[in-house]
Design a protein around this nucleic acid. Structure first.
Lengths: 205, 205
DNA sequence: GCCGGCATCAGCCAAATGGATGATTCCTGG
DNA sequence: CCAGGAATCATCCATTTGGCTGATGCCGGC
């Protein structure tokens, strides 16, 4: 019998997953968590074979950090990310964090059940359309922005001017422009609006 | 016995809602739909007392249009919107479309059950924090943008320059600037980035 | 029929933005 | 120790953007 821990901040979704998973008789849900912190604690006690985890967990740590912490446990559960969005940056981030797979919530229940079985068996499981996109992404890898650049990008997305960004970060406007120039180059754009757009598209922010 | 029709594009969520709703014995789920079109057809045949509907329904018509069509039926079901996001524009839009209420998916199951009962009884049901925000929004009502302005705003959010927008819409750059000036005034901003930001915040786009 | 809102266009001007180039400092990994 | 990336700052210049004012044609409601 494969044991599963559910992690999702929506009670309704947890109920749905439990119903779907326990419809067969090869899987059993041993626990539910609404937050990442709760998930880590529970996993430490329950030692589930597979953790089914949403990426967005409301307040508190996100699915990526939760995954990293879960994979550090001994024994480490397989972590299967099940979420609503398919931001490239998040998919990559999840895989790098040690997730066994990444499925979208709009798939059929049986796909989820199959995914859990394969994750428990040590397989990597990706939604078919994701797999091809991720592989394509490998060819032209997501630009690596530095922490500072991400920070600037966030202010940018909130509509801040260079002057405002400079003030909040306690640097010169020249510095902000310098960061922006780097961001523009890495994202291959030539305006702040477009930078915001691709950053949101790829899930960088 | 109050009858309920579920509308959500995620099978998992439908399972969860069904489990939650049928946990008591005063409500019964008479049908499930994955799209707005399907929901309208089913409601016409099943005559549910309450339709529980997500706003985002993947491809096809959205929850607002679905609500309008449902309210045009005879007898018209009460429509309760249950969704993940709380964009002001969407909440207002849903109410204007004739929805009996608007709940967020992260509420406790019992709140959903209560909401269904109250919607069936003809009440208006809003999540508490939403109610206050909507009332506040009434005081400074959401700016009314014209169709053309929304169109420009969308291009803006995709990062287009004035020149590009002008080309796409087959108008002069002067016209685009004119629309932008109006948009800026209505949104009370002074830069395209900030316009994009508040438009996304309020759910205008 | 007239008023008002909408979409369209124009010109002018100040400010913000973006591109190019280069310098300095700090830190980190060979 | 030294190469290289990161963050910081600077100057110069062309382009874009945003603010202002004003004009025209169209349509729908009163």
């Amino acid at each position: 019998m494969t044991t599963v821990l559910l992690v999702d901040d929506h009670p309704v979704v947890r109920s749905g997953l439990r119903a779907v998973i326990e419809a067969g008789d090869a899987l059993t849900v041993v626990g539910e968590a609404a937050t990442g912190e709760e998930a880590i604690t529970l996993a430490g006690h329950l030692h589930p074979d597979v953790v089914l985890c949403d990426l967005r967990l409301g307040s508190g740590i996100d699915g990526i950090r939760t995954t990293i912490a879960l994979r550090a446990l001994d024994p480490a559960p397989a972590v299967l990310i099940l979420t609503t969005f398919d931001r490239d940056a998040e998919v990559l981030g999840a895989i790098e964090a040690g997730a066994a797979g990444y499925l979208l919530k709009d798939v059929d229940p049986e796909v989820i059940v199959q995914g859990i079985h394969r994750a428990a068996a040590g397989d990597i499981v990706l939604a078919p359309d994701l797999a091809t996109r991720v592989l394509k992404g490998m060819r032209s890898p997501l630009p690596r922005l530095t922490d500072r650049e991400i920070e600037v990008l966030r202010h940018l997305a909130r509509g801040a001017t260079n002057k405002e960004i400079a003030r909040t970060l306690f640097v010169t406007e020249a510095t902000v422009k310098s960061h922006l120039a780097h961001i523009f180059t890495k994202l291959d754009v030539d305006s702040r609006s477009r930078a915001i757009h691709v950053a949101q598209e790829t899930g960088l922010i």
